[in-house]
Every structure is written in structure tokens, then in C-alpha cells.
């Protein structure tokens, strides 16, 4: 429906309707996205008093070259976590696939697998911390397995802390995105799958040669979103360790800058430094996401159904 038609009088009520629908989201976007990001860009190039300065970028470079700096550890852990997320991505798709294929008790699992997203992550982290404390069976088991003199403090020991944070993340995200994949797989026409079964196609060939190509737009979009979020890759660092014992990640570092300063943001240049770091990783992330988009466009031809 055209709002402005050439040669025809403007329907004022229609224009009012369009304005009503669009004004709020546009204003919100301009303030909380455009202005916020422009401010952040400017802050990256200024000190806390607003004077032009490149000290934030110099500081970033120095810290990146300092082997024990939080930033360096954060980059290392972020890439490690992201690598694990990439490797486990197909496994999570398979989890949804097997639920869709109705393995025994699939209906029960579909509900139980949502428990981590239903129960507050704060509560889950607290319970998890109690369960892996030195009094718990997990710490005892690690002590026996590695022949340690005493049960380890798994979240306060640099040998284990990062591994435990990542395992915690994998444990809670094991089911993957059941909502997205569940809805996606159910849209695949059954007759295609049935005829494939009649032709004697096994489950792996069905998955890789029929199912995945048919849902490739979803796979591609999820992969692009995954790579776009590369620097957001993190376990529950804030809740479990606050970044100590070698567990810091970029997103935890960013959050801690904000969390530690919200009471007195006027007396430090940490926001400016955070903006500078954000700008640098934005540039890197954009490069990666553009690259992955190109690859996903070429990898499979979209199947229309």
C-alpha cells in the first residue's frame, strides 16, 4: 500500500498511522544505538576530560603485549571459548535433530533441556559453585584422578578454573537452540524424508545431504550470528570467578569495567578505554563476519521448499 501516491491527495490518517508505528522505534534506535555508538566512538579517541587523545589505543597495545595483563588473557580465553563453540555447533544441531527424530523420551528431554534457560543463571552458578567446592564429589574425584594431595579448588586454581568455566558453559548449552532448530526441522516436508528412507538412505546421509541443505538458510544465519558474536564468547565468568585465576574473557572484562564503575564513572577514564577496546574488536569482528558471510553464501545452494 503506497502512502504517497503521485497525483493523489495525501491520506492524512494513513500518514498518522505510519508515524505512530514508526516514531517510537526510530527515536529509540537513534538514541540508544546510533548516539550510543557514536559517543562510544568519540570516547575512544578522548581522555576522561574530553580532550583528543590516542592514549587508550597505546594502552591497549601495551597491555596486549604484557603476558599477564587481563586484556591478553581475555583475548586468549575468548578465542579458545569461541573455538570450542564453533566445534560444538554441529553437535548442538545434532541434539535438536535427534529430538526431532524422536529418540526415546524425546518429549521429556525437550522440556528438561530447557531447565538451564528457565532457572536463573545466577541460581545455577551458585549451586554449581557449591557442587564443585572442595567438599563436593567432583573435587574429590579430580583429586583421586590426578593423584593430588588435597581436593582442588576448581574455580580458584589456574590449572582448572578456565576449564571448569568452559565445561560449565558446555554443560548448560548442551541442548543448543532447541527453539530455533525445533521449529526449523518441523518445516521439512515428511514426504521428502520418507522417500529418502525408502531409497535406503541412512541417518547420516539424510542429515548431511537432505536435512542440512534444506535448512541451510538457518544454518548460515546461525553461523554468521555465531561469528559475529565472536568477542562475546564467554562462559559465566562474572558469576563464577569474576575473571580471576586466568579466566577473564573480553565480554567479562567489558562487563566488569561497567560494573565496577557505575557508582563513580566521573573519576576514571575506564569508559574511554573500554570504548577504545570495543572499537578495535569491532573492526576485527566485522572483518571476520564479512568473511564468513561470503563463505556461507558459497557453501550450499539454498533449497526452496
Amino acid at each position: 500500500m503506497e502512502v504517497f501516491r503521485k497525483g493523489k491527495p495525501i491520506n492524512k490518517r494513513r500518514v498518522l498511522f505510519v508515524i505512530c508505528c514508526c516514531i517510537l522505534p526510530i527515536i529509540n534506535w537513534l538514541i540508544f544505538y546510533v548516539f550510543a555508538n557514536v559517543s562510544s566512538f568519540v570516547m575512544a579517541f578522548t581522555d576522561k576530560d574530553g580532550a583528543l587523545s590516542f592514549e587508550n589505543f597505546v594502552r591497549f597495545w601495551e597491555e596486549l603485549n604484557n603476558p599477564v595483563s587481563d586484556i591478553r588473557i581475555a583475548f586468549r580465553n575468548t578465542f579458545l571459548t569461541f573455538g570450542i563453540i564453533v566445534v560444538t555447533f554441529p553437535l548442538k544441531v545434532l541434539v535438536s535433530y535427534f529430538i526431532y527424530k524422536k529418540v526415546p523420551l524425546a518429549g521429556v528431554y525437550r522440556i528438561l533441556f530447557f531447565l538451564p534457560s528457565i532457572i536463573f543463571s545466577v541460581a545455577l552458578a551458585m549451586i554449581f559453585q557449591k557442587m564443585i567446592s572442595v567438599n563436593g564429589f567432583i573435587a574429590q574425584w579430580v583429586q583421586d584422578w590426578l593423584n593430588l594431595s588435597q581436593p582442588p579448588e576448581l574455580l580458584a586454581d589456574s590449572r582448572f578454573a578456565n576449564t571448569v568455566v568452559i565445561l560449565h558453559m558446555l554443560w548448560l548449552t548442551f541442548p543448543g537452540d532447541l527453539i530455533i532448530w525445533g521449529g526449523t526441522f518441523t518445516r521439512i516436508p515428511n514426504d521428502v524424508l520418507e522417500s529418502a528412507q525408502i531409497d535406503g538412505v541412512n541417518w547420516w546421509k539424510e542429515f548431511t545431504m537432505i536435512t542440512v541443505p534444506m535448512v541451510w538458510p538457518t544454518v548460515a544465519l546461525q553461523m554468521v550470528l555465531m561469528f559475529c558474536g565472536i568477542f562475546g564468547a564467554s562462559g559465566a565468568v562474572f558469576l563464577l570467578t569474576k575473571g580471576m585465576y586466568g579466566t577473564m574473557t573480553i565480554s567479562a572484562w567489558m562487563y566488569l569495567q561497567l560494573y565496577n564503575l557505575t557508582g563513580s564513572p566521573h573519576t576514571s577514564n575506564a569508559y574511554n578505554y573500554m570504548s577504545a577496546v570495543g572499537l578495535i574488536i569491532t573492526v576485527i569482528a566485522i572483518g571476520i563476519s564479512l568473511g564468513i558471510r561470503k563463505w556461507t553464501d558459497k557453501a550450499f545452494e539454498e533449497v526452496e521448499f
Binding site: 593430588l148 588435597q150 586454581d157 576514571s268
Partner: peptide
């Protein structure tokens, strides 16, 4: 306001009694 701490924020108490010998 600068962020300086007497022990540079290093939690040496934890390191002195760390169960991990390499820590």
C-alpha cells in the same frame, strides 16, 4: 583514583596457599 594498590592487586595470600604447586 589511579588504581594503584600496595601489592599491585596481586592476591598473594591465595598464591602462598594454592593447592596447585605451579601457582
Amino acid at each position: 583514583n589511579g588504581g594503584a594498590k600496595p601489592y599491585a592487586g596481586y592476591k598473594f595470600v591465595a598464591m602462598f596457599c594454592a593447592s596447585n604447586a605451579s601457582d
